[in-house]
């Protein structure tokens, strides 16, 4: 029988969901405008760190202000085709 759902203020988020997204497979020449435009449409961005050395090129950390924005962004943008490359978006642990 269905568990009685107590009046919860908000549903519980899975533990791995957090506000910091690690993005991989980014085009190397992506600009700040493109990053803020693409990720900014899902919520206010706290900070973006873009890799600029040989090992870290193509990866970035995008930090959102709100955890739900980060969750939506992660769901919508993973697999997004940016300049011919499919983005990999993961929660940063």
């Amino acid at each position: 029988m269905a568990a009685p759902n107590f009046p919860q203020k908000s549903f519980r988020l899975p533990p791995e969901v957090n506000r910091i997204l690690m993005v991989r497979n980014l085009p190397f020449k992506v600009s700040a405008e493109e990053m803020f435009e693409l990720f900014g449409q899902y919520g206010a961005i706290r900070q973006i760190r873009l890799g600029d050395t040989n090992e870290t090129k193509g990866t970035a950390f995008v930090v959102y202000e709100d955890i739900f924005d980060a969750k939506t962004a992660c769901e919508r943008l993973s697999g997004y085709n940016m300049m011919g490359r499919y983005l990999i978006v993961l929660y940063y642990q």
Partner: peptide, 22 residues
């Protein structure tokens, strides 16, 4: 944030003038 995120190899992007946080 600095404690959480790697500093070397990454640069912090400045939000461009066109960026308006929604």
């Amino acid at each position: 944030l600095d404690a959480l995120l790697p500093a070397e190899g990454y640069r912090i992007l400045e939000p461009p003038a066109s960026y308006v946080p929604i």
